[in-house]
Every structure is written in C-alpha cells, then in structure tokens.
C-alpha cells in the first residue's frame, strides 16, 4: 500500500514537473514575443528621434541606428524657419483646439438632452442622430455638398462636419444616465432652467467622460488628413499632416526648401549641419508626432473606461 501510494505521489509530482517545464517554456516564448512586438512599435519613433538630432550627413546615409551621432539641434531651428510649415502648425493647432472644443461641448450637451424625457420627440431625434453612424453618402456626394456650402478652402470645413459625433454622444448619454436623477430634480425644484441644470449640475459631474471625448476628438482633429486632401487647395490652409505628406511624396518641394536655405544661410555651412531631405523629413515627423506623445500618458488612463462604455452601448 505504502509503496503504491509513493509511486502515485511520484507520478503526480512528475506530471507536475512536466507541466512546469511546458509552462516555463511558454512564458519564455511569451516574453520574447512581447519584447519583439514592443521593440517593433517603439524603435521607429526612437530611430526618427535620434536621426533628427544627429549629424545630417550620417543620417542621410542611414548610419544612425542605435545612438545619436554628432548631436545638434539645428534641424529644429531650420524647420521652424520653413514658411509653410509654421502656418501649417497654426492651422493644425487651430482646428484641434476649436474642433475638439466644439465636439466636447456638443457631446456633453446632446448626451444630456437625449436623457430628458421632457424634450419633444426625444427618442426620434436621438435615433436620427445615432443612425448616421451606420450609413455614409460616400466621399463624392460629401465633397459636392461641401463645395455647394462654400466650405471648400475654408477653415470651417475642418470644423462643422465633425461637431456632432454620434459615438461621443452615446458615451456622454450613458454617463449622464448613470448619475443620480435626484440632482437634476432638486435643481429644477429650486427653479433652474434646462440650461442652468446642464451648466451648473451636469457639466461638473460628467468631467471624466468629457476628458475621454476631448482626447479622442483632439487626436482625430490633429490626425485628420483626408479632408485637407479633398477640400483644400490653398497652401494657407494646409495642415501639418498634409505638408508632411507632401514632403514624403514630392522630393522636389523638399529640394526647393533646401536650396532656398542654402542661399539665405551661408553656403559654407558644414555638411554635418546643412539640411538634407532626410533631416527635414525626420524633423517634421518628430514635430507632428510630438504633441501626441506628450498627451498620451495623460489620456491612457481614460482608454479603458471610454472603450468599455462604448462597447456596452455602441
């Protein structure tokens, strides 16, 4: 009996040991795969950063791979001097601030209004708005509409079509529904009107969801590219994304910039610091990606809440 028990025990230990091996192997492979994936996601950003501050001759020949070589920050000074670029930066910042601001206020307000049974035709209008998530006239009818409205080559063409975003309204509505109704009722008994209830009672308590919406809206505005491509032909209204795209596809426009820089600045500027196509491209990329990386740590904590609320009702 005792011997039998012993073998049984041994076997089970053996089995356990074997499991341990396969589990350990699995963990090694898992760590390896994630390190690889993280590297693939991270390195490109790092690569562009070190190239934008390295010796321009070396970076143009693809020699800067692991650490920056011959560090200097002249590229950023040079890029700041490129005419169209500072204008594009202003346009991008402008549309991000104005566009995201309007989207946030609208999402909060409509999210609140669509919870109010007292509103005339609430259900119908809510569906009227949300239905637009599921159909799309297509870019050509949209383009023709925009030109009929005079929103071609117009800053407001970046703003108006994006003010009402059904998904964000759903997020806010769900959030408002989760707050105690008694708060609104108490304010109304005290004689507060609809707008007062919204600005004094609702707005302060839905701040967390508004933060989520603000971030999504701002990132969307900052990254937008297609509307410039379709609607804008005057360089004055080009966004940073669009200008970067031009730099990527039209080597000529870059060469022109480099040449004009050469003539205005001293031609004797050393090879290491004079602008190359690569240096301008990399530096502009850093400028475009920088705001995203800056706000990223702050909005990361809002991800999950935003996604989950959206998933429940989306």
């Amino acid at each position: 009996m005792a011997a039998k028990n012993k073998t049984k025990l041994n076997r089970s230990q053996g089995v356990h040991y074997k499991m341990g091996m396969s589990e350990r192997l699995m963990m090694v492979v898992t760590y390896f795969v994630y390190i690889l994936f993280a590297f693939v996601c991270f390195y490109p950003f790092y690569y562009i950063l070190i190239n934008s501050i390295s010796n321009n001759d070396l970076s143009a020949r693809g020699k800067v791979l692991i650490v920056p070589l011959g560090v200097h920050f002249k590229n950023f000074v040079a890029v700041a001097k490129i005419q169209g670029l500072s204008q594009a930066f202003l346009v991008s910042v402008g549309r991000t601030v104005v566009g995201a601001g309007l989207t946030v206020i609208t999402a909060g307000f409509l999210g609140f209004m669509f919870t109010r049974d007292t509103m005339w035709g609430r259900k119908f209008w809510y569906r009227f708005v949300v239905a637009t998530m599921y159909f799309n006239a297509g870019i050509i009818p949209w383009f023709l509409t925009m030109s009929n409205l005079g929103l071609k080559n117009n800053f407001w063409g970046y703003i108006f079509p994006l003010v009402v975003q059904p998904f964000n309204i759903i997020l806010c509505k769900t959030f408002v529904e989760s707050t105690p109704k008694a708060l609104q009722e108490a304010a109304e008994i005290d004689g507060a009107g609809t707008l007062t209830v919204f600005f004094r009672v609702i707005l302060p308590i839905i701040k967390p969801i508004l933060a989520t919406v603000a971030i999504f809206a701002a990132v969307g505005q900052w990254n937008a590219f297609q509307d410039t491509l379709l609607l804008v032909t005057t360089p004055k209204l080009y966004t940073l994304q669009f200008v970067l795209y031009q730099y990527l596809t039209q080597a000529n426009s870059l060469k022109a910039i480099i040449n004009s820089q050469m003539s205005t600045e001293s031609i004797a500027a050393s090879l290491a610091h004079s602008q190359t196509q690569t240096s301008i491209r990399m530096t502009v990329t850093i400028v475009v990606v920088f705001p995203i990386i800056c706000v990223y740590p702050f909005f990361q904590r809002y991800f999950t809440s935003g996604i989950m609320i959206g998933a429940v009702k989306g």
Partner: peptide, 17 residues
C-alpha cells in the same frame, strides 16, 4: 497602443524612414 494614435501619414513617414 501608441501607434493607434498616429495618423496614416505618420505611419507612412515611419515606413519611409
């Protein structure tokens, strides 16, 4: 998660680099 928040133009710029 970071790459999700950059535009396709930036992705292309990275691809190009």
């Amino acid at each position: 998660t970071l790459p999700n928040f950059i535009s396709w133009v930036l992705v292309y710029s990275i691809a190009y680099s």
